[in-house]
Write a protein that binds this DNA or RNA. Structure first.
Lengths: 255, 255
DNA sequence: CGATGAGTTGAAACGTCTCAATCTACGTGG
DNA sequence: CCACGTAGATTGAGACGTTTCAACTCATCG
């Protein structure tokens, strides 16, 4: 049946082009799948849904329908607190997934808000799971992606376990740096999409403390900061700070 | 073929009895599986491997082979620090799983050490994955369990995001309380398997601070503590403390 | 160009850490 | 069975780090 074949070919090519243009290609769920499986998976993705700064991707209690992949922009997840505050629990950069926590409860556990203009790909989970039950590589890939998330969460807890604000912020910056690098961005120079308040909430610090630490790191020549823009100038010293053995940049500078 | 049938029946019954005796039955990977699938899954589990206090279940860099389920006792996971210290990243109670973070890397990311005499069931992951690719309900269950872990990790980050030591310890105790309850233990009375130092490492606090907070909570009548033993006396006030609006028990007591 | 929100800075109050001493429970060997 | 050693837990006091509240600066946008 040549007609059908032709249609299929066109479809595949269109899809591939669409995803090739997305520089996250190898980073989301798609990586490591055979050509044919990939086409199947791509066919269920809703591509490039757009959110403005402050828009919610989802909120606590909403029924879980889709897993989201950040295409561009970034997203924070948080628990709303009584009194209007927010407890930030995560930041999601391009190429990272969102919503995996809701699969089990079938209801979203937290709010997700765009930190700037953000484009998102959505995978309807029921279709994804249906596909996984047929295509072995999709199932395998799903489990691996969730495992990666769990190991990332564990590393995040090591950041929070640091006793000093300095160590926590340094470890946080290193974590961002690594994640940017993994996504093909510069590991030494990037823009923080989130506010000082968000960083503080995430790290368990007051926003003023975050601000002061940035200026201290800057004075010590460890990073250069201007508002959202961050440039890591001395990776080694930043690592030392993250390991908790930095304490007082002036002393470290003096030799 | 009656002979074969008979053998199978005996096997199944033996397995079922073994798992019925394990009061975690419905809590580990086995929950929600059809009778037949359950039998298949049970057949690959190595049951009741025993560890003494201080023994390692696995260590960083070791090849990942099995997912562990804590049967009795408890386990801490941690990153070893240069200098001999430990950054504790998790505690695992009976019925909870261990090692999901290593699936993707195929190598363990952290150390796991028994906090007391601990019995563990082990599921060889390659066989589990093989089974998942054939039995749909196993695959489904695996994804749900990993999702639950991810949502648990997110909640843990909310604990760490609290700015005051008091809130972190209160939230930590509430978290333990909930987990004990889910496993059929008393939510108001339990023994802490981990040391104050471990709790401090996990929460980003000095061990002395943890100790002082316990005595303060005790003085305020929120909990009764004696070494490892903890009894929650005033759940509401503990919740208030966890929400950060407690601050100074004496003042709270005075009205 | 004024309004707004985010970020920075200062000073004082407060919380947490550090170091050191003491205490307790527990296991070991005499 | 007791004495002892040890590891974990508690307590105190002072140093230090972080928060709080407030004022101020800076960028952005209508």
């Amino acid at each position: 049946m040549p007609g059908r074949d032709a249609v299929q070919t066109v479809d595949l090519r269109a899809l591939k082009v669409a995803c090739k243009h997305c520089n996250l290609f190898q980073l989301c769920l798609l990586a490591g799948l055979a050509e044919a499986d990939l086409a199947l998976l791509e066919s269920i993705i809703e591509r490039g849904r757009l959110f403005r700064r402050g828009d919610h991707l989802f909120q606590v209690g909403e029924r879980f329908r889709v897993v989201c992949a950040v295409k561009s922009g970034s997203v924070k997840t948080y628990f709303p607190l009584d009194g209007g505050g927010e407890q930030v629990v995560g930041f999601h950069l391009p190429g990272e997934l969102l919503g995996l926590d809701a699969i089990n409860a079938e209801t979203h556990q937290c709010n997700a808000k765009a930190l700037g203009t953000t484009s998102v790909c959505e995978l309807p989970f029921d279709r994804l799971e249906g596909l996984a039950s047929v295509v072995k590589s999709v199932q395998r890939q799903m489990v691996r992606i969730m495992s990666k998330q769990i190991s990332y969460d564990q590393a995040a807890r090591a950041i929070h376990g640091k006793r000093h604000a300095e160590g926590r912020l340094a470890a946080f910056l290193l974590n961002l740096s690594t994640r940017f690098e993994q996504r093909g961005f510069s590991p030494l120079e990037f823009n923080l999409a989130m506010s000082r308040l968000d960083i503080g909430s995430y790290l368990g610090l007051a926003e003023e403390t975050v601000s002061r630490l940035f200026t201290r790191f800057q004075k010590d020549g460890v990073v250069a900061v201007q508002r959202k823009y961050v440039c890591i100038r001395d990776l080694d010293r930043l690592r030392v700070a993250a390991n908790g053995s930095y304490m007082n940049g002036a002393a470290a500078r003096s030799d």
